[in-house]
Design a protein around this nucleic acid. Structure first.
Lengths: 185, 185
DNA sequence: GGTTGCATGTAAATGGTTACATGATTGT
DNA sequence: ACAATCATGTAACCATTTACATGCAACC
């Protein structure tokens, strides 16, 4: 998905500034599935405005740069719907971790432990964040997507917890009990 | 992971041509986690050879271009081990599908059905392919990674199968209340 | 006779990230 | 005092994809 469409999507929900949109990709509902940096958002918004797909309301920012609130237009909504109609590119996962683990035999076991500990911690935190996510309104789309992300992360977490001993020779999971974090799954 | 490291990884397993490496990313064990196209592989191999990390054996190809078999050197193995030592970038999923589904209310229900049908079919085929994957030898790393991928794909498949009705209004599965939904369990 | 597989390579286009430039206000 | 938050924007840089160029052999 190009950044223009991504921005249009956020603006289809509510008016926002470039800064807001960036926050959305950093913390919002599907921050785990899409991303965009300032360096691509601002030019995208400019282009969308030039095409009449969004309008800008400039609020004088006093000291700061003027706050530019972007609002999607009817033609913008149409363009967005058309973009959604295009066949989606295949999902893809890019995982350096799995690449490293693939060659695990080349690394010291405690390094592997650290890597997996790190990923488990990250997944727990991500799951906790998603669980507490009030962001998506009770409409179906956002909830469905949130559930999808949760299902995948929970599966990844469970797999790592239950199979890490295969890789590191750590004691089998029988011993592993309650210690850290909020209750798993 | 940059393409040079990726190539080094494949070559750490066995000597290969650029073409072989491409096949590996297309069909091999972790084709789901990394990718590289010819346009990046060939220059990467050239650079690796220039750095003395691999050697080339040119077999005259008769009609075709000469087949260039690359073999990793000791210094290449060392460089690869060092690359594995670097902290991995965070895993990331890029999913146009979830973006589209997020805005599902803007699309006709049968379009949603098609999208989900397509993804389910794709996942089933991917899982079948991985299940039949004889590629990874019975060493721990490759099997662990294969299992990780399978766990994630199975979770995605199960979620889609069990929750698609939430999105499309399709009749709920007979065995209702399989309770895996976005609802916290 | 047409497609797929083998086999290499280059160059242009793509699309994005990173770094820079600016600077007041609020929180620790 | 120092960091983070708010807030915009440009430009250089980067890696990778895509398209092109070449061409035989095997299969259907």
């Amino acid at each position: 998905m190009d950044v223009k469409t991504l921005c249009l999507g956020v603006l289809a929900l509510r008016p926002a500034t470039g800064y807001d949109i960036r926050k959305w990709f950093e913390n919002g509902s599907f921050s785990h599935f899409q991303d965009a940096a300032f360096g691509s958002i601002y030019p995208a918004l400019k282009a969308l405005a030039a095409d009449g797909l969004v309008t800008v309301t400039e609020e004088p920012g006093g000291s700061r740069p003027d706050r530019k609130l972007y609002t999607i237009t009817e033609s913008g909504r149409r363009a967005f719907r058309m973009a959604l109609e295009r066949p989606p590119a295949a999902d893809r996962v890019r995982s350096d971790l799995t690449f490293i683990l693939f060659f695990g035999h080349l690394l010291p076991p405690d390094r592997l432990d650290d890597l997996i500990d790190g990923r488990i911690a990250w997944l727990r935190q991500a799951i906790a964040h998603m669980d507490s996510c009030t962001d998506p309104p009770p409409v179906t789309g956002p909830r469905f997507v949130l559930g999808y992300g949760l299902a995948i992360y929970r599966a990844a977490l469970a797999y790592l917890e239950q199979n890490r001993h295969l890789l590191t020779g750590t004691a089998a999971p029988a011993a592993r009990a309650t210690e850290q974090g909020p209750e798993p799954s």
